[in-house]
């Protein structure tokens, strides 16, 4: 194309820059400059103590040192990871099984589009409203306790949000409910993409469906599984709405459901910009590493 009418093509191609301009300008102003100034902020002491403003004063890496020294960062990172794993493990297992069932031509499940519609539904629900709903449902005087007591499973109401285990479980459970439908659809799409002749050959050879699943489906699905794992991990690091609303931002009991982004949010509200900056940079580096892995996977496929 370019060799045919050289002069014309060049004049067309300047339109590439024009069409690209809105993206570049908006990205620069609303993402890149904020990112750079966030990094810049992380090297300054800058917070409010009562009514007096401390700083901004350049202190190098001191914010980072404080962040690691006082231990909160590691506690919250651990909380975030525990709740992510608690939600992700059942999510990936259920999604794999459902994906295999939905894409299995021998099984011929009826109403599969109804089931797909239902399991994807929680993903679209406003996370904050969903958390508020769970807060009211699992409150001491709420319907879940009332059902458990009425049916005799519990003798008296259990305060789900006052115990570390149950509070973390609720957060993980909500994350599971909100994301397993999405993962199922992604994995199913991947399974549909597998060459059907492989399954037919396995069937002719008399393989059971368990064998087919572990010997054919799972190995061929590996790139998508890694993609799902890492994007879910990046999403898990951003866990905020659900625990924030469920615990009213306190991360109780004993800050055991406090996530990294809740911690960041706290610093942003108290205007401790130095610490907020350092925390943002750490989160940025972790996601950048994870993103790089995703990037490598998705470009290797092309």
């Amino acid at each position: 194309m370019s060799s045919k009418k050289n002069g014309k093509v060049v004049s067309y191609n300047k339109w590439g820059y024009i069409f690209l301009a809105p993206f570049v300008i908006v990205y620069l102003v609303f993402q890149l400059i904020p990112l750079i100034s966030t990094i810049w902020n992380s090297f300054f002491e800058n917070y409010r103590s009562g009514l007096t403003q401390i700083g901004p004063r350049f202190i190098g890496l001191e914010n980072y040192i404080t962040l690691f020294k006082n231990g909160d960062l590691l506690t919250y990172a651990k909380n975030t990871m525990i709740m992510w794993v608690l939600g992700f493990v059942p999510q990936i297992i259920v999604s794999l099984v459902l994906g295999a069932w939905f894409s299995d031509t021998r099984l011929k499940l009826k109403c599969s589009s109804f089931f797909k519609t239902v399991i994807y539904l929680p993903n679209l629900i406003m996370a904050s409203a969903f958390a508020m709903l769970f807060f009211t449902l699992f409150a001491n005087t709420g319907p879940i306790n009332s059902i458990l007591v009425q049916t005799g499973i519990l003798k008296e109401a259990y305060s789900f949000l006052d115990h570390t285990g149950s509070a973390r479980f609720l957060v993980a459970f909500m994350n599971f409910l909100m994301w397993f439908g999405n993962t199922t659809i992604l994995l199913m799409a991947g399974m549909m993409g597998i060459d059907p002749s492989l399954f037919e050959a396995a069937e002719v050879d008399g393989a059971t469906s368990t064998q087919v699943f572990f010997k054919i489906t799972l190995p061929l699905l590996r790139p998508i599984l890694v993609y799902v794992l890492i994007t879910s991990l990046i999403g898990g690091l951003q866990m905020f709405d659900v625990p924030q609303i469920l615990t009213n931002g306190t991360g109780d009991p004993m800050r055991s459901t406090m996530t990294l982004i809740m911690y960041l949010n706290k610093h942003l509200y108290s205007k401790n910009y130095g610490m907020a900056g350092a925390l943002s940079v750490i989160l940025f580096i972790i996601t950048a590493i994870l993103s790089f892995i995703v990037f490598r996977i998705s470009t290797r496929k092309d």
Binding site: L20, F23, V24, Y27, V29, F30, Q31, I33, P34, L35, I36, S37, T38, W40, N41, T231, I234, L237, Q238, F240, I261, L264, L268, Y273, A276, G277, S280, V281, L283, F284, T287, A288, L290, S291, F292, V294, F295, S298, T299
Partner: peptide, 24 residues
């Protein structure tokens, strides 16, 4: 270069730039 750049920043969450964003 731009295409690669967009792919690389695709998964960066908005929360990590929130501080600079709010200040700006």
């Amino acid at each position: 270069a731009i295409f690669t750049f967009i792919l690389m920043v695709m998964t960066i969450p908005t929360q990590v730039t929130a501080l600079g964003f709010v200040q700006l």
